[in-house]
Amino acid sequence: MTSAEQEDFHLIDEVDTEFVDMIKNTGGPNIQSCYQCGTCSGSCPAGSRTNYLVRGIIRKALLGLKEEVISGQELWFCTTCYTCTDRCPQDVKPTDVIKAIRNVAVAEGYMLEPHQKVAQKVLEAGHAVPLDKESWEKLREKVGLPPVPPNASSHPEAIEDIKKIAKKTGFDKLVADKEE
């Protein structure tokens, strides 16, 4: 088999013409300024060690290949370091575009399990990294601090606030465990 035969070509009728607008409305308004120079990918520390290719994702997004873009696991290798954003000659703000695409992916059910668990932790404890073991309290005492800090760890009403916000925005349903 030749490499050409292995290639999975995209069909033009797979395009979603609304995808670009979704990205523009979710925090990536400058995506259409991209002229594909590749400065983003050339600057990308995630791209140098994984199959995450910012330029490619933006090009596919502009072509409307929504399903392919949002289902790709590589979308989650961006550490949001913003080096591409600082170097982009067209002010595309690729980091914000990637975050916007991730928002679309999550809204359509593409959320990695460890990410879902972190989101649930914030709704349960008010913190992504909670004070969830006695040893963490002991560590605080050892440095001369009270065992529990004055944040949501000692303010259950703050956690209730977060739950109310999540209910209002629909985020609680978005990150809830899906019934089989």
Partner: peptide, 10 residues
């Protein structure tokens, strides 16, 4: 990077 990637308004 986590919450901002999930839902901007939340």
């Amino acid at each position: 990077g986590v919450f901002g990637s999930f839902d901007r308004v939340t």
